[in-house]
Write a protein that binds this DNA or RNA. Structure first.
Lengths: 120, 120
DNA sequence: CACCTTCTGCAACCCTTGGTTGCGTATCAC
DNA sequence: GTGATACGCAACCAAGGGTTGCAGAAGGTG
């Protein structure tokens, strides 16, 4: 029935900036707060905060090397997030399909009763 | 490459309370702010605000009858939202697949070069 | 009609969060 | 050592999700 989703994980990917960050990390393999902020319309500090959020739900992990902190996407966790997106989408989709089917059934029922009326 | 999503639409379904509201509206057909709040852990006023948000992005529409305001899901718009969920999910999924494939290729490459070294 | 209930809308007010600026600090490179 | 660079922390602001409180419109009943 109603799909149980990890609200923290969902809202982590619910933010547009964080989605773009994930896109960047996926396409570039890894990145720092500074390097990511160069491709985003927000400051480094904002990116750093988002990285904390993403780290909290396990979507990224960091390795510190000297003064740089490289972030990478945790593939398993992102796969989990993708699965939840798919689950919710599928649930709503089946709801919509069901409503559509019912509507068509009612429509067909009307036609039938019309014909019946004519026949009577 | 990066899927273009309607950020307003996405963040509308990004909120867990709004997702539950959509679930309720889908399963019950329609509902008022008051009736929805009875099945949710928030007050009627909070629900009313969420309904404004959902209405702003076209996910719900209202019909006023007497003192009651009945809300219904706009199926076309919800279908659009579902499509965007699927798009983003698919984009990330293909990214993950690609990374996995590259990793396997590198692994295979190592094996091959090992064999090549042996042959040489 | 009057009264009471109920459903809605508006306003004020918290707290969290996404964003900024400013500053201090650690690391690298010369 | 000095300067540039990458980071972290703190203060601050605006928007959003949530609450309470209250006023008004619509329905039911004497």
């Amino acid at each position: 029935m109603s799909v149980t989703v990890d609200d923290d994980l969902w809202s982590a990917v619910g933010d547009p900036t964080r989605r773009r960050m994930l896109d960047l990390l996926l396409s570039e393999g890894s990145g720092t707060a500074t390097s990511l902020s160069e491709h985003l319309p927000v400051t480094r500090q904002a990116v750093a905060k988002h990285l904390v959020v993403l780290g909290r739900v396990g979507l990224v992990r960091a390795t510190t090397a000297g003064r740089e902190k490289q972030f990478r996407v945790d593939q398993a966790q992102l796969a989990r997030a993708v699965a939840q997106l798919a689950d919710v989408g599928a649930a709503w989709d089946s709801r919509l399909q069901r409503i559509k089917r019912i509507a068509e059934t009612i429509q067909r029922g009307k036609d039938t009763s019309d014909e019946t009326e004519k026949k009577q």
